[in-house]
């Protein structure tokens, strides 16, 4: 098994938060819950068969996190450490329930880029665009950044295979670094990047189709 490096250490903010939690600060705890409950449930859900099981896993993980706070040594970011606890409990639970881990591969779904957009080996410039993608610069900002467009992005993310969706959410919605995502989800550097690439390519494509299909009507 590859050793995951903890290149991202706990920040001063992490350590201060841990101190507040150890002191029993309820507001600090609830802030942590608000930030992490939803992603933790999704991560658990990748390993177990039902939403109810995922909720049990996450409840157990919170207990594990609280118990482990005294041992938290800051060798990784706090959230990376928390998510690894969730993933470990979820894996154990999933194995016990006989569920096979669904994403030992890169989950396929490599269709964000359509080979048909490019010229074939028999054409004049193999691998070149048949026609350039329509330019987004002509789209008014109110539309590009509008609620409907953002909802369309949300749906495109929901349609991704689970691991791709989670990598994209952690990286691009929550703004995690690639090291943190690799550590939290136990991915190699290359796999993290491949999953991110497939996810972003598909979301861009969905967005492009939405933006231009509407305009043609």
């Amino acid at each position: 098994m590859r050793r995951v490096s903890d290149a991202v250490l706990a920040s001063p903010a992490d350590l201060a938060l841990v101190e507040r939690l150890r002191a029993g600060d309820e507001a600090a705890f609830m802030m942590l819950v608000e930030q992490h409950q939803a992603p933790m449930l999704r991560i658990a859900r990748m390993y177990v068969s039902t939403q109810a099981a995922a909720e049990e896993v996450v409840s157990e993980a919170w207990v594990g996190i609280l118990k482990g706070l005294d041992r938290f040594a800051g060798r990784s970011s706090l959230r990376t450490w928390m998510y690894r606890i969730v993933a470990n409990i979820a894996k154990t639970r999933g194995q016990r329930d006989g569920r096979t881990i669904p994403f030992s591969s890169l989950e396929g779904g490599d269709d964000g880029v359509d080979p048909e957009w490019f010229q074939s080996a028999a054409e004049r410039s193999p691998g070149g665009w048949r026609t350039h993608p329509e330019d987004w610069r002509g789209i008014p900002e109110e539309r590009l950044e509008g609620r409907e467009t953002l909802e369309r992005i949300g749906r495109a993310i929901d349609d991704l295979p689970p691991m791709q969706a989670e990598v994209l959410r952690l990286r691009d919605v929550l703004g995690w670094s690639s090291e943190e995502v690799r550590n939290a989800l136990d991915l190699s550097e290359t796999n993290q990047r491949v999953l991110l690439h497939r996810a972003r390519s598909r979301v861009r494509r969905a967005l492009h189709e939405y933006l231009f299909e509407e305009q043609d009507r």
Partner: peptide, 23 residues
């Protein structure tokens, strides 16, 4: 643009009863 727009999304809200149980 896709990365920038994705960054404008927010996390889903969690149900009140989960918060109460965790507190």
């Amino acid at each position: 643009d896709t990365i920038r727009l994705t960054g404008m999304l927010t996390e889903e809200q969690i149900p009140e009863e989960q918060k109460v149980a965790l507190l």
